[in-house]
Amino acid sequence: MQKAMTMARPWAGWLTVALFLIFGSQWVGSHTHPAALLGLFAWLFLMIVWVAFGVVHEAETLAEMLGEPLGTLVLTLSIVLIEVALISAAMLSPGGNATLARDTMYAVLMIVLNGVVGLGLLTGGIRHYEQSYNLKGASAYLSVIIPLTIIALMLPNFTTSTPDGSLAPPQALAFSLLTMALYGIFLWLQTGRHRGYFVATDAQPAELQEVARHREVAIDKKKLLLHFGLLVVHILPIIILSKSLAKLLDYGIATTGAPKALGGVVIAMLVFAPEGISALNAARTDRLTRAINLCLGSVASTLGLTVPAVLAVSLYTGQSVLLGVAPSSMVMLIATLVLSGMTFSSSRTTMLDGAVHLSLFAVFVVLIFSP
């Protein structure tokens, strides 16, 4: 049954792609009944989430073959690729959304660092009292996340080259290169000389032996290529369907009068749902290092890859992109970064850490609808 469901995912995704390529322009029109548009949005949303679980499945299979942290890296990069595709589709649609990239990155930070981390630490603490993890890995993640967050989401509010929270072209180019360089150095260290920072401390000797074994024994290249191919087969329909989903999302927000920031929240929830569930399962089964790798890795990848991507689209199309968040959001970001630094300053966590993060997440939800 499980195998049949796994095989059905890509077929269902590509069938949906074919139907929207043929009939999408008729279905997503100005004269379509709102109830029908809501149904189309629900169909696309659920289909993308279902196929995204296939992405997670293939990435976890590759993780077993490649070992950590390469496996987690493949998963986070795959999810961020989907996120970039959704944001770019919305930016390139008629009337483009100048704040969607900012809202999505902010939502990812709040949902992951407060919602998923909070719930994971709370449930893990209730079940295991205290949980341990590799402190060096979490500190490495935060050392990248903190400056990238400030550069991408706060600094644009204080520059004088532009009157709003956007960046002038020289700033956009310089910040994109800086972001990619910093994230590239982090990836080099994560997959190279400091690879041991990102595996569980109690399992580290075994993990390192496994890495050595993989280097000595040739990996089945055919099987590896097969699963990389299946990973691409799962990702492509999501990317193709992202344009239709972006249109429906913009129309729904405009029609209902919902907060514009809700679009970023929907995309953040959409792309991170499978990875978030994997992180929560890892925390529940006392594999906190993997949970932290998934959570903090997704945030670092979002900032390290989404910012250069949206700025590149902005420079290419000449469309303005507003990155600076509102004052209340800056307060929330600062509080989240400070709290994350305190939570991951010790090698053990308790349910109290999770409860505090969840309280900030609750404030974030309230501010969406009552800014």
Rank of each mutant, 00 (worst) to 15 (best):
S93Q: 10
V51F: 01
L70P: 02
L62F: 00
G95S: 05
G54I: 04
N97P: 11
L66I: 06
F53G: 00
P69K: 00
A63G: 15
A63N: 09
L40C: 06
W50F: 12
M65D: 05
W50P: 01
E58A: 08
E83Y: 07
T72V: 14
E60P: 06
F45D: 10
G54W: 02
A85T: 15
L44S: 10
A63E: 14
A98C: 09
V55G: 01
A52Y: 10
A63L: 11
S78D: 06
F45L: 15
L73R: 01
W43V: 12
G54K: 01
V84F: 08
M65L: 10
V74A: 01
T72Q: 14
A90F: 12
E58R: 09
E60C: 11
N97T: 10
G71A: 12
L62N: 01
T61W: 09
L81G: 07
L75A: 06
M91L: 09
A98H: 15
A59L: 04
P94D: 11
A59V: 07
L92F: 11
F53A: 02
T72S: 15
H57Y: 13
E83A: 14
E68P: 01
V49Y: 00
A59D: 05
G95A: 04
A85W: 11
L66F: 06
I87K: 03
A59K: 01
F53Y: 11
E58G: 03
L40I: 04
A85I: 08
L92E: 14
F45V: 09
I79P: 03
L40N: 02
F53R: 01
E58Q: 13
E68V: 06
I79Y: 09
T72M: 09
G96P: 08
T76E: 15
L73M: 08
L44V: 12
A52H: 08
V84M: 09
